[in-house]
Structure formats: C-alpha cells, structure tokens
Design a protein around this nucleic acid. Structure first.
Length: 279
RNA sequence: ACACGCUGUCCAGGCU
C-alpha cells in the first residue's frame, strides 16, 4: 500500500489528478493516507467539491485529513468554511492552528489571525511563523520584531521572515546584520538577502552573495537574472541565463521583462518567439 | 521521497 500511495502522491505533486485517481482505483487496498493524498490532489487542481466529496466518503479520517480539507478551503477562498471545519474537528494539532492562522493572513485578516493565535493552546514555531509572515507582508515591522523577540526557539523560517521584513522596508543594514547572525542559513536565506539588495539598488552586493552562496537552485538563479534585467543589465542577465543548469518559465519571463523594461520591444518580441511552449 | 502547515524569484489574477 505504501508503494501505491507513493505513486498517488507523485501524481498529485505533478497535478496529474486523473492518473492519481486511476492508481487509487486499481490499488488492492487503500488506507487513510491514500484517501487523504487523493483529496489533496483534487484540491490542488481546484476541484474543491470533489475534494469535499472524498472527505465525506472516507471510511476514516485523522487529523491530517481534516487539515488537508481545511487547507483546500483556505486556498480557494473559503475561509469561513475552513473556520467552520476547524471549529468542528475532533482533534487539532499544531499544524491545524498554523493552517488557520496562515489562512487569515493570506486573506489579510490580521485581527482574526492574531485573535486565533492568542487562543492556541500550544504556541508552535510554525504558528508564530504564520503570524510573523503576516506582519511582514503588511510591513508591520514593530509587530514583527516583537513577535520574533518572543520566540523562544526561532527556526530558519522565522529568521528568513525577519530578513524579508528588513529587506522589504529598505533596511539592508539590519537585514545583513541579521543574516550574519543566523545560526543556520538555508538557500532561502541567501536568496532573500540577495533579493533585498537587488530591490534596494545594490546589484553589486547581490552578485557577490550570489557567487558566495554554497548551493544555487533555480529560484536563486532567477532572482539574480531578474535583478540584472530590471536595471537594464541584459548582457549580465543573459550570461547567467546561459550558465544556469536548467531554466523554467520564470527564467524566460525575467529576461523578457528586462527587454520590456528597457523599452526594447523588438528584442522582447524575438525573445518571446524563442520561448518554449511549455516548461 | 506514503498524506496536511509557516519563509525566497517573473507575470497575471483575486480580496480589503
């Protein structure tokens, strides 16, 4: 069953819901993981009613099934329905609380998010992070700082949110100080600080860090390319574009955007025609 | 790599 479930989950990640459903139908026996994975698959494809139907039909549900269904509602704008399920679920874990707080945050309902945060029986780091990202998103620097200061044991996600906070408000001095102080940095920390320098007009510093970073994924490459493109340094952008191990649609769009930004519509059009149909 | 959640890139959209 585990092997079959892996296949379902693989298809779900690729948004191949028809194939996931096919596996689900032919597998000899299904457990709660199979059902939940399928539910998530429908939800990811925007088929909320089908997801709900699966949820209702499942022979058994655990806290993850509930969380998955709540996430589905949150992601498709049904925040009230999500809250209703949250209130009615038999058992809530730390993730349930984080999902709901994060749902409110994404709907810009910060008051509701912080009210719920205050009610949480256990303050997991992910719960803090959900609220923190909301403060950061809305530029509430002081609130973010206070919340971060209250964190007993911030993880790399918390640190990264604070990096974003300072970078977005133009305080690259604070961002860099924080970056240097981080107990551990991941690829997102590096990309965030690079993006910060780019947005604040320091392409040189950005590039230095780009060269220094231990591992670069496609998003890091795209970030640096986009930074060059935005300031009209298209040769640099193109050079990186050629160098990167693989490209996705964002890589192509970033260069395109660079041409548009430079008012070079002729090159933009040529580039557009060179773009692969899908990626 | 058996299912859910919090942080980074282009564009578009949605909400207030």
């Amino acid at each position: 069953t585990v092997t079959w479930n892996c296949m379902i989950s693989g298809y779900v990640h690729n948004h191949r819901i028809a194939d996931a459903q096919r596996i689900f139908d032919v597998m000899p026996e299904r457990n709660v993981v199979s059902w939940t994975a399928l539910l998530t698959g429908y939800a990811k494809c925007g088929m909320l009613e089908e997801a709900q139907e699966i949820f209702d039909r499942m022979p058994e549900r655990n806290v993850i099934s509930w969380n998955s269904m709540i996430t589905a509602h949150v992601n498709w704008g049904k925040i009230d329905k999500a809250r209703e399920m949250f209130d009615n679920m038999p058992v809530r874990n730390a993730t349930s609380w984080a999902i709901m707080v994060s749902g409110y945050i994404h709907h810009k309902l910060v008051e509701k998010a912080s009210a719920l945060f205050d009610q949480a029986p256990v303050r997991a780091v992910s719960l803090y992070n959900a609220l923190l990202s909301g403060y950061v998103e809305l530029g509430k620097i002081k609130d973010a700082e206070d919340l971060f200061a209250n964190l007993q044991d911030p993880n790399v996600v918390s640190w990264n949110s604070m990096l974003t906070c300072y970078a977005r408000s133009g305080r690259m001095d604070l961002a860099k100080a924080l970056f240097d102080k981080m107990p551990e940095k991941d690829i997102i920390s590096w990309t965030t600080i690079i993006q910060g320098y780019l947005k604040n007009g320091n392409v040189k510093a950005a590039h230095q860090l780009f060269v220094q970073m231990p591992v670069r994924d496609i998003i890091a490459w795209n970030t640096m390319i986009g930074g060059y493109a935005q300031v009209g340094k298209l040769e640099d952008a193109l050079q990186l574009f050629e160098m990167m191990p693989q490209r996705d649609i964002v890589s192509w769009n970033s260069i395109l955007q660079g041409y548009v930004q430079s008012d070079d519509m002729a090159s933009a059009w040529l580039w557009f025609r060179k773009m692969p149909q899908r990626s």
